[in-house]
Design a protein around this nucleic acid. Structure first.
Lengths: 201, 201
DNA sequence: ACCAGCTTTGACCAAAAGGTCAAAGATTTT
DNA sequence: AAAATCTTTGACCTTTTGGTCAAAGCTGGT
């Protein structure tokens, strides 16, 4: 099932890499096979030799990404210090936004438009993980280790504030006048203070 | 310049209303004139009688929306009680997300994709307003009225956490199992507590 | 060196999509 | 009620786009 020869894995990799660029900046519908062909240096028929079609490429990207995307949350451990666990999660999430903005925007595009190609993943594995970790957080609040805040909404806040720096990148840069990624450092300090203050019991 | 006869304003209104639906759920590129025609009950050529083209409709929507979108921030007054002013802003912004989710998603689509049709508005009036209000907030922190947090990043947090409920609506509903808009009430309470705790000096 | 199987592509195709236009149908003005 | 103006639309055009295909070009194993 999976690519086997060297040439196959190289080409599918090149296609996915190019497709991530194109899909994340134009959305599924806005992306064209010609753009992906151009960006990957392959011809359009050649791309269709490796993937069944435009939708298959998009699907492959989403499948591969969900795991990586949820990894930071998965690391949230019930055993650690509550405040530290959460601020560490915020930090990891912000680093993801800085280092993988295309992935973030790929998801953002998909969700904003109603997740027509991701419904199952969201209602299945994503919800399951969130519910599990929400329970962990609820345990902390019940034990008085952190301020009593709804765990689900807390997770939403973390997602929203961190992903904002990837998804709304142009806006952030326009307002801050940021040239490079320097503002991520400020954002990290800001979010650390912010969540620490909000969560301290 | 503006529509004048009754029939003109009715039809342009119907087109913009339909276009808001279509553009906000499919993005600019994903929306088609046929969909807008279908949704508005007009024929495609009839739509093109009122607007120069697809891009003109989109432009009209964005222009009309920016003002309303920034209204809640504009109301932030330097004279009021700092904490109350900010939490009231958060509340207004969340109400916007609840009552005008399509508008929020229209913007989200545009910004996520690099704001190709909105750059000027963001770098111009939007940045100007944000800078102005950031200065107000900076005054409050310097006076020790609220905790010392970077004003720009604070504004980003408010945008991110509130708009999240509109832009990522499907995800929020999938996770909360929300049927109607009941979760907005919880979100309002959550955000009020959250920002109050974070901002108290 | 040869060949079986894998890879690549130029030329096409059909459907979708933005847009045009002349003529027919309403409305308003005089 | 006729003229003038504004609205509406069926038919049509062009470009874009996802996708196909047969033939040509490569590659790796023997």
């Amino acid at each position: 099932m999976k690519p086997q020869t060297r040439i196959q894995s190289e080409k599918t990799e090149a296609i996915l890499e190019a497709a991530l660029d194109v899909f994340s900046t134009h959305g599924f519908r806005g992306a064209t096979l010609d753009q992906i062909a151009e960006a990957s240096g392959l011809s359009k028929p050649n791309i269709l030799y490796y993937f069944e079609g435009k939708a298959a490429i998009h699907r492959a990207l989403l499948n591969r990404l969900l795991d990586n995307w949820l990894a930071p949350l998965r690391e949230l451990s019930a055993d650690g210090d509550p405040l530290e666990e959460i601020t560490a999660y915020v930090k990891r999430k912000l680093e993801m936004a800085r280092d993988y903005p295309r992935e973030s925007r790929l998801f953002a595009n998909e969700i904003v438009q109603g997740a027509p190609r991701m419904r199952d993943q969201i209602e299945g594995p994503l919800k399951a993980l969130v519910d599990e970790k929400a329970e962990v957080i609820r345990g902390w609040t019940k034990a008085g280790k952190i301020a009593p805040l709804d765990p689900h909404h807390l997770i939403f806040s973390i997602w929203a504030t961190t992903q904002h720096y990837a998804d709304f990148d142009v806006q952030v840069r326009a307002i801050l006048g940021a040239q490079k990624d320097g503002h991520f450092h400020d954002a990290a300090r800001y979010l650390a203070t912010f969540f620490t203050k909000a969560l301290r019991p």
